[in-house]
Design a protein around this nucleic acid. Structure first.
Length: 260
DNA sequence: AAGACAACCAACCGCCTCAGC
DNA sequence: CGCTGAGGCGGTTGGTTGTCT
């Protein structure tokens, strides 16, 4: 599926990803993180543009991406969130763990729009202006990162293990820090914030153990192996780079929660 | 069996925002 | 304060697959 392979004016490959390219990208990002999408393909041995790599990782290769069909609960949640937020697919995606904005967008256009048209006649609900405005500020990622310092103490256990994971990128991690989430209550999805009563329990209930599962320490990194891989020319890694952005986040969290 | 059409979804494109300088 | 580059977002495209005639 997708487009036929081609090359852009810079000689970079376009079109569908081969399993070999997937392996290279997956291995590189899991090992080193995405420190710079633009530079990454060069070091990962890929002749792709950074954007393409980012998209491939975010929408397909990222281990947190849930594959397979949407459940009825997810459908209802998307419909409700779309009513509230409009076409803010990324904002909607933050409330559906494991689902990407692209996936939700596609699902909306191919399934839910029709379902809605069937239910409501031809008119598809358009969110009110003020609802969209409200969602803009609500979904502002900068604001969300500022909320880290207000993160409820009972949820810190989630943070405790998160930044160490080699499989969790900064953006994924930052989205895990957003502590508003959807909870199915009386057959109605409700957006909760982290200050709500029993929020952590509800969070766990709402998204299962997805974010709360302890991460395995990456013991796979082996300097000798790394050197040999370098020699084999599998990856190239810039000298100046030592920590990935996941480590930066760890330091940020440690700064905000010195008692951890 | 085969052509036409619809549905699906990965990937691309262009624009916007924001941080760094 | 303007410029630049990187990341992110939403709309759109187009190839593949499934279904119908």
């Amino acid at each position: 599926m997708g487009r036929s392979p081609s090359f852009d004016k810079n000689g970079r490959k376009k079109g569908p990803w081969s399993p070999e390219e997937d392996d290279k990208l997956r291995a590189y990002v899991q090992r080193y993180g995405h420190w710079n999408w633009r530079e990454l393909p060069k070091y990962a041995g890929l002749s792709r543009c950074g954007k393409s790599c980012r998209l491939r990782w975010m929408n397909y290769l990222c281990p947190n991406v849930k594959r397979g069909g949407f459940t009825e609960e997810e459908e209802d949640l998307i419909l409700q969130l779309h009513r509230q937020l409009g076409n803010k697919w990324s904002a909607i995606a933050t409330r559906l763990p494991g689902r990407t904005d692209n996936e939700i967008k596609n699902y909306w256009h191919t399934h839910l729009k029709k379902r809605l048209m069937k239910e409501n006649g031809e008119a598809i609900f358009e969110p009110k202006e003020q609802e969209i405005e409200a969602s803009k500020s609500e979904t502002n990622l900068k604001q969300r990162s500022n909320q880290i310092t207000e993160f409820p103490s009972e949820n810190r256990a989630i943070l405790e293990s998160a930044p160490l994971s080699p499989e969790l990128s900064s953006s994924e991690f930052s989205s895990s820090l957003t502590y508003d989430y959807a909870v199915l209550r009386d057959k109605e999805w409700v957006i909760e914030d982290g200050n709500s009563t029993n929020s952590s329990a509800l969070l766990a209930e709402a998204i299962g153990n997805f974010w709360t599962e302890p991460f395995l320490e990456d013991k796979s990194f082996n300097k000798n192996e790394f050197s040999s891989r370098m020699e084999e020319g599998e990856f190239f890694y810039p000298d100046s780079l030592y920590f990935d952005d996941g480590m930066d986040l760890l330091y940020q969290v440690l700064k905000d929660f010195p008692e951890m």
